[in-house]
Design a protein around this nucleic acid. Sequence first.
DNA 1: ACACTATATTCGACTATTCGAATATTAGAT
DNA 2: ATCTAATATTCGAATAGTCGAATATAGTGT
Lengths: 118, 118
Amino acid sequence: MLESMRQFKAGIFQALGHPTRVAIVECLSRGEMSVSGLCETVGVEQANASQHLAVLRNKYLVETRKEGNQIFYRLRDPLLGEVLEKMREYFFSHMNEALEVLREEKKVAKKVAQEAKR
Amino acid sequence: MLESMRQFKAGIFQALGHPTRVAIVECLSRGEMSVSGLCETVGVEQANASQHLAVLRNKYLVETRKEGNQIFYRLRDPLLGEVLEKMREYFFSHMNEALEVLREEKKVAKKVAQEAKR
DNA sequence: ACACTATATTCGACTATTCGAATATTAGAT
DNA sequence: ATCTAATATTCGAATAGTCGAATATAGTGT
């Protein structure tokens, strides 16, 4: 049971563990939006957005509403927005190391790319 | 900048997106613990625990303290515990669908296993 | 110096995620 | 019925994450 609970939580975190999906959830925390709206706002192709939305749907993080031709997405539970809000707090109180983390990751990526050339 | 922020958040969520790491963070939210303590509590091998701890360390989610032979880990910021707390709330208010998600995932896993046999 | 314990890192096989391209589905308009 | 727009799904290639086994490092006691 404890294990199931952890699996469940990990599943949600994992669903949130992609920049595009973070962007989607942040958009939706400000209100519902159609898929095409999301594509435009987030700056991602339709098929890809749809795949990411499927991930969020499978974890029941979002709900949908049909209106004619289009489908509007919204967050299932405002609690999710709160979790993101906590993250925002976290981000600001650790801004410096956050940037450090990102620089570090870029450096590693560059190194890997270089080694791949050889 | 917005994009960096999302990458940062996604990185943290991803770090939390594994049952073992959720277990570790939950343990640590109750106080510091040595690696061997974590191995025992979480029920995972030493090398594996160390790998998961490295993930958490790389995102600066945990800090360490040496005491003689052993190394004690603790959460870097109680805010993280709060995020987990929000998740606990989320879990309970969506208990039913949580179980549904898990059942669904098991079913899919079984199906895949079956198809692999053919 | 040697053995012992705790922790970390590296390696290779395996599995899962991600993306774009192509295709399928669904609804409204003609 | 056919056409078009919006969304979803499937496929294949590339990338990233995971695990256990083996190895490395660091501290402690003899």
